[in-house]
Design a protein around this nucleic acid. Structure first.
Lengths: 207, 207
DNA sequence: TTTGTTGCGCAACACTTGTTATGCATCCGC
DNA sequence: GCGGATGCATAACAAGTGTTGCGCAACAAA
């Protein structure tokens, strides 16, 4: 009765996400997405009335990729540390998706930075409450410290050549993570000085 | 011999900066800037061959505003703390300029986040070396901690409704600043706990 | 007052965007 | 096979962008 459908909604959203990956959210135009699929612009508008709706779906797909990264971080030996590392990894490997999720205002796409932040905070809070028997408020305070560190690093990574080495970023992150562990677990004595704690952290991880 | 010039280059750059302030850098179009001045688009192109050149000047003007904020921070009782506070103030009062300076890639305008970061780091390093007799590397480490905190807060402020109150941000900032003072000055004993140090900091300031 | 220069308003050009009208070609039910 | 519903390519439209030609009118020198 009708010709077979060549492209599903999924294909279009994935193509649009690939455009974001390579050229950023501003390059997500009807013609650009169509070219990515090797199609005309027509099929896009059989699934979407406006490009805004497509962008909203792209945003959701990007968010689910982000959530995958963070979930994997929870599986690390020290989940608090793992979440931070995975956050940085997301920024390195998917900088344009990072910018879409965290550096654009809600109006332009949907959601906004707050949404992903709250998602992450909920995960970390649950993890801290469960592992360290921490109360919710304290957990949120520690999450805030983690967030301050990794959010800065990640944003520097995606907006410019980051002035800090991966090694330095890892060290600072481990220091913050260690502070959490130290506060709620008896941890082997720390070396003196604020910037030499990574060794102690490695010891802790090896236990 | 010729009609009097109505608009100087300066007027055009300032008008463009006002457009950035109210509608963001993407709204800086020839017609928008002309409307801001109540002129046609023609005068813009007597001073500039392309809009990109105008945007470069706008970027420089925004940077000088930023530098004014930071310079004022150095005049505070505790310059390290003052710089952080002024950085947050800049984000609150000039969010679009902040986004232009710190959340866009170098190619789009000129400069990029690194340029402003290096400028700020130089100022803070000099200040720390002078006041606390700190060596350059240590000063940069402390600057890094300050930067991590305020850069995260500021970026949250301009990209979304920040989940942290001004009071909480000020508290964390004072905590970081206090760590600097504590390391290089004998400071009255700190209350226990990682998140109650603002009282001690206030004491310090009152001395 | 005249004259020549030239800043600027007007309006056009080329281009890119979202969105849509048209018509071809496909392919399921018969 | 085959008819018709319909997915899709083509190409157009309107709106918005940067940029530029045209011509008026202002104004300093004569």
């Amino acid at each position: 009765m009708a010709p077979k459908v060549k492209f599903q909604k999924e294909n279009i959203v994935e193509a649009a996400l690939n455009v974001v990956r390579t050229k950023g959210i501003d390059a997500v135009t009807a013609r650009e997405v169509a070219a990515e699929l090797g199609v005309s612009t027509r099929p896009i508008f059989t699934y979407y009335d406006t490009m805004e709706q497509l962008k909203a779906d792209v945003y959701e797909l990007a968010k689910s990729h982000y959530q995958d990264y963070i979930q994997r971080g929870l599986a690390w030996e020290i989940p608090f540390y793992g979440v931070g590392q995975q956050y940085l990894r997301f920024a390195r490997e998917e900088p344009e998706l990072y910018k879409l999720l965290f550096l654009t205002r809600p109006s332009e796409a949907s959601g906004g930075a707050m949404e992903a932040l709250v998602f992450t905070q909920d995960l970390v809070r649950d993890s801290l409450m469960q592992i360290y028997n921490m109360d919710a408020h304290t957990a949120d305070c520690y999450f805030r410290d983690l967030w301050l560190v990794v959010f800065s690093f990640a944003t520097l990574i995606v907006t410019d050549d980051c002035p800090y080495t991966d090694e330095e970023m890892g060290r600072v992150l481990s220091e913050v993570s260690l502070a959490v562990c130290k506060a709620y677990k008896e941890v082997p004595g720390l070396p003196e000085g604020r910037y030499d704690r990574d060794a102690a952290f490695r010891e802790l991880v090896q236990q």
